[in-house]
Design a binder for these strands. Sequence first.
RNA 1: GCCGGGGUGGCGGAAUGGUAGACGCAGCGGACUCAAAAUCCGCCGUGGGCGACUACGUGGGGGUUCGAGUCCCCCCCCCGGCACCA
Length: 837
Amino acid sequence: MFIKEEGSMGYDFQSIEKKWQHTWESEGTFNADAEPGREKFYCLEMFPYPSGALHMGHLRNYSIGDMLTRFLWKKGLNVLHPIGFDAFGMPAENAAMKYNTPAAEWTWRNIEHMTEQLKHMGCSYDWRRRVETCNPDYYRWTQWIFLQFFKKGLAYRKNAPVNWCSSCSTVLANEQVINDGHCWRCGTPVVKRNLEQWFLRITDYAQELLDDLDNLPGWPERVKIMQRNWIGRSEGARLSFTEKTTGEKIETFTTRFDTIFGVTFLALAPEHPFVQKIISLSPEGDRISAFVQKCVSQSSIERTAVGGEKEGIFTGFSAVNPVTGEEFPILIANYILMDYGTGAIMGVPAHDQRDFEFARKYGIPVKPVINPAEGEPLDGNSMEKAFEADGITCNSGQFDGHPTSRAIPEMIEWGVQKGFCAREVNFRLRDWLISRQRYWGAPIPVVYCDHCGVVPVPEEELPVLLPDNVKITEVGKSPLAEDGEWLSVPCPKCGRPGRREADTMDTFICSSWYFFRYCSPRNGGEVFSKEEAAYWMPVDQYIGGIEHACLHLIYARFFTKFFADLGLSTAREPFTNLLTQGMVIKDGAKMSKSLGNVVDPDEIISRYGADTARLFILFAAPPANDLDWSERGVEGAHRFLNRVWRLVEENMQVLGKAGQNGPQSMKDLKEPRLRDLKRKIHTTIRDVTRDIDREKQFNTAVARLMELLNALASFKAESDEEQQLIREGVEVLLSCLNPFCPHITEELWEMTGHGEPLAKLPWPMAEEDALEADTVTVVVQINGKVREKAEFPAGLGEEALKKMALELPGVGKRIEGLEIVRIITVPDRLVNVVVKG
RNA sequence: GCCGGGGUGGCGGAAUGGUAGACGCAGCGGACUCAAAAUCCGCCGUGGGCGACUACGUGGGGGUUCGAGUCCCCCCCCCGGCACCA
């Protein structure tokens, strides 16, 4: 059975894979339910966007997750392994325009197709739990969560300069602007626009998001570093300067309060509120206004490029240094950002390179207040660049002579006492801009009423359904704004005519909580069941691409903390362990449609089978590395599975009698070749287990299974004893290979007369006494160079080892006539004879 | 510029401070075959030698050590993140 006809090659993976996939599905083999008291494991892979078909990145992601899931089931855990679809987003709208098909229809068709593809991979999901974020049963809870943010004051509207992608016709969050001001999705340069938008107050959680990274030992260090940089905490002080003629207070933030005596100008962002006052009051108002206009119209790339030309304009206004009483000019400068700190800075050209460049250009004095600890004191007139390092304070009254590390806290303390400043912490992280001027997303559940203002939709009226048949346009306004019928709705508060919010939510909102929904996916009455979440959460192992380090992985942490604060869950972190898989590379570049170097997973699976594809992916590289796709490598994996098949086939009569006598123990085996094979079987169990469990080195785990196959295949079994051993070896091989290649191993397991399927049979245990070596290869070095290798009995004492080593012919002749200085021994491994002369 | 992660055969990759190159791919030689494919056996870091052997070898240069791919210092290169964040 299942041997292909002559002329084709190898075992009949197509029939076998279909058969077992059908079994798992019809029997719900991998369905998991909360069983309080039983140890659980929540294994999760980032759910896919239903773009149409799986790509190799998905195949890699899901192969890793599936292998781990199956391994953990066999280890006896209750494993939750769900999947779903991140189904809202732009491509559906583009498809709608291109093919004139409703976005929903296109999306659902893709979901069904990709579900089939996942099944063809042999993935062990609990399919009862599939969620789709575009399903009203799901997004009503996305909307509900929004309302909770709103109620707590954490969702708010604000008019602000925001990132606008002209190609996607929508605004973007800060995290979604990457590579020097480009849209994360389409790469178009982003421009700033002033718009009234919805934000989530993620900055309220900035400190906790930062601190709790220290509680995540199971995360890759580099992801944590990326998040720390992104959150960007800086400690300093806020101090205000008074404008001389108007008495206006201008607030600034600095991390270098120790440079306060060196301030020689004040600079405002072009968007700073005081700028408008300057324009209206100044005789030069028109000129200043023109400058401001120019800055504002610059793209964010031009505005924020390092080393970009710093431009400014004198305003004619001046401010007074509260500490020194000195007076200095106020300028407007293009390099000051309105959305960081206060949008105004105290300029200290001697100790800040940006201020230095600016001051030199506009002839502003440079006043050093810190000297290098060693060498010449600084001269403001001749300095060629700012001195930003630590040093010794000078020109600063009673603080002169203090080193920077002391000067900063002392001077802040003094400033606070005197009332000049207040301690302040600033974060680089900005509030999360969540409104999108797009159709295919979860509608923001609020209504605008001329009388009541912004009114949330009552929870019992959720979901606010997305209308069908909306004409998708590219005008830069939400398509929903065009649907008058949908838009008009009575105000929930006063009943008078109101108007719905036409923007939808960022799809990253939808993906920030899906792992909670998986715990109770069909719960109609709650966002998720507290009890089920308490059992399953947090996710024990999360697997996905590193590109989400500062996107999804921060947002999901934020939501989790918010849920905990609402009392919905006790988990304050969503993902205990994180595995960031590398990219799939072909011909030296990331596989992508635009480069034309994609390999279609369907094609690989139909040509070689899912087991082969999974095996190759897990074998070709450690999971965190990039994986170089190689058709030859795939063939190699396939060849290995064929060899496994043949090994069983050739030993059928022996293996069919499985379980009759059970394996012999090590102490019953006398012949070295039998003892060696027995040892190989058990060291394989030990090493494969360690590789998967602790090291997450699936490639070496596979290598060890290949070694075991090589050992079994070259072992000629004749006696009963030998046949017994082969059987033990094959059983171990199939058991350990099962999580990697579930179909072929189940089939062979069944063929060899086993009744119970392998899937949930216990993972094999290594027998302790079968791990110990009888003999060991000892290396003998002379002065650290390998000169001899010899097989010695294991466990020799130091003296015996030295003696036997010195008696080796290659050693004796080399040390003849030389003085032995000392002999280093490492039991069972090495002898190093150190000689002189 | 700052912060990470890396540089090991022709290639992907292995190596608790103790035999560098496991396992696989490619390549070479052989068996089977009329032939090919598949399969099986053997070889496979570089230089020298018919050979037993021998010297060299983990980006470069120093150092620690009986012994360094692994630890320390300096440098070069590649990849990734951040970048006018006050």
